[in-house]
Amino acid sequence: MPTGIALRDVREQLFAAAERVLLRAGPSGLTSRAVTDEAGCAKGVLHRHFSDFDDFLAELVRDRIAQLARDATELRDAAGTGTVDDNLADAVTKVFGPVAVAIVSLIIFRDELRTRLRRTRPIGVPLLSDATVMVSEYLTAERELGRLTPDADVDALAPTLIGAGHLLFADRTGTPPDAVAVRRMVATVLSGSQIR
């Protein structure tokens, strides 16, 4: 007799369930049983679609990276509009939403997950590295448009912004920083690199 509920888009429903568990219980509480219980389906459903739990988690991370790629396009398209500080503050806030912060913790927490992700992303922490590339591409576009100084070192500024952003948002149980704090961090990192 079947257990649980019929799942239309199994992958997306399992990912959504994993994100809810991750937000509620953290990396140590994220198990295949917790995910399938949250999704309201039998444990075998997950294993029919993924070779094992770490394969599932790797696909979850890749799905979030794909979402970040869409955000990167939006950020690049914003070059030359608004202010550089506001565009980056909005992007950093979006990058470090609660689910992304929890996923970064998960990547750091699970050795096997990191090993699997390293097969295609050998450098840095996945998601954080992708966010750094996103910011670097945006800063390059702004420099080319003359809104940053010609000698602005985007390869140093981008990881500094992502690292500082991660520190601001890293406490998944605390209150996230407000928009003023994020904008102040961005302005401080970019001080001396912007043409006003």
Rank of each mutant, 00 (worst) to 15 (best):
residue 123 I to P: 10
residue 131 A to D: 01
residue 123 I to W: 12
residue 103 I to K: 09
residue 152 A to L: 06
residue 91 A to G: 02
residue 101 V to P: 02
residue 121 R to M: 14
residue 58 A to P: 12
residue 141 A to K: 05
residue 70 R to S: 14
residue 88 L to P: 00
residue 135 V to S: 02
residue 98 P to H: 04
residue 147 R to F: 04
residue 86 D to H: 07
residue 145 L to C: 08
residue 86 D to C: 03
residue 93 T to S: 10
residue 109 F to H: 15
residue 130 D to H: 13
residue 150 P to M: 02
residue 76 R to Q: 13
residue 109 F to R: 14
residue 120 T to Y: 12
residue 91 A to R: 09
residue 92 V to A: 02
residue 75 L to M: 04
residue 101 V to T: 05
residue 70 R to V: 15
residue 113 L to P: 01
residue 128 L to N: 06
residue 140 T to S: 10
residue 101 V to N: 00
residue 140 T to W: 00
residue 59 E to L: 15
residue 129 S to R: 11
residue 121 R to A: 08
residue 52 D to L: 11
residue 111 D to E: 14
residue 140 T to C: 00
residue 60 L to R: 09
residue 104 V to K: 04
residue 153 D to K: 07
residue 103 I to E: 06
residue 86 D to G: 06
residue 100 A to C: 09
residue 65 I to P: 07
residue 130 D to M: 09
residue 99 V to G: 00
residue 54 D to W: 02
residue 117 L to T: 08
residue 66 A to W: 15
residue 72 A to C: 05
residue 77 D to M: 03
residue 95 V to N: 09
residue 86 D to F: 00
residue 119 R to E: 08
residue 71 D to M: 09
residue 92 V to F: 02
residue 103 I to W: 03
residue 87 N to M: 04
residue 155 D to A: 07
residue 102 A to H: 04
residue 56 F to G: 08
residue 127 L to K: 07
residue 144 E to M: 15
residue 68 L to H: 08
residue 74 E to W: 08
residue 144 E to W: 06
residue 109 F to I: 03
residue 96 F to W: 08
residue 77 D to V: 03
residue 150 P to Q: 05
residue 114 R to A: 03
residue 89 A to P: 00
residue 121 R to L: 13
residue 53 F to P: 07
residue 127 L to H: 08
residue 156 A to R: 06
residue 103 I to D: 03
residue 157 L to D: 03
residue 99 V to S: 06
residue 67 Q to V: 14
residue 86 D to M: 04
residue 91 A to V: 04
residue 79 A to R: 05
residue 139 L to T: 07
residue 129 S to N: 06
residue 117 L to R: 14
residue 134 M to K: 03
residue 120 T to I: 08
residue 93 T to Q: 10
residue 125 V to S: 10
residue 59 E to K: 15
residue 142 E to A: 11
residue 148 L to A: 02
residue 75 L to A: 05
residue 126 P to I: 10
residue 117 L to V: 07
residue 143 R to V: 10
residue 82 G to V: 00
residue 84 V to F: 02
residue 59 E to A: 14
residue 140 T to R: 06
residue 104 V to A: 07
residue 144 E to C: 10
residue 58 A to M: 09
residue 65 I to N: 08
residue 70 R to T: 15
residue 103 I to T: 08
residue 158 A to D: 03
residue 62 R to N: 12
residue 53 F to C: 11
